[in-house]
Amino acid sequence: MHNNNHQKGLVNLILLIQITIAVGLMLFGFIFQAEWAEKFMIGVGMIKPMHTQVDYYTYIKGIEYLLCFYYFLIFPVFFMFINNKKAAAKKPVRSLQMVTAIEVDKIKQ
């Protein structure tokens, strides 16, 4: 069971890293106005003069659904990260007083 969870965690981590890299690269491209990023966006039709509202909607809906797709990849990972009972069990909930008490103890020692 433990091993299984471990593997799951690893797979999730790899997925998360991949997405982060992809999104990061895009952002990097945007910020530094890199030519390849622009070329890519022209290639996939993201930068194109729009003359009609119908074409505009085809374009924005396409991007929206693509983002939703990525969201569906990220959300379950995030959910499992937050809702991990095993991890929560290891670290009991501590109130502020408890934390300060521990710190005070440490200092005293």
Binding site: Y57, K61, E64, Y65, L67, C68, Y71, F72, F75, F79
Partner: peptide
């Protein structure tokens, strides 16, 4: 248009 704008909201909020 009204319905089309609701779609991504549902897709993102419902989960």
């Amino acid at each position: 248009r009204d319905f089309l704008s609701i779609v991504p909201m549902v897709l993102v909020i419902w989960p």
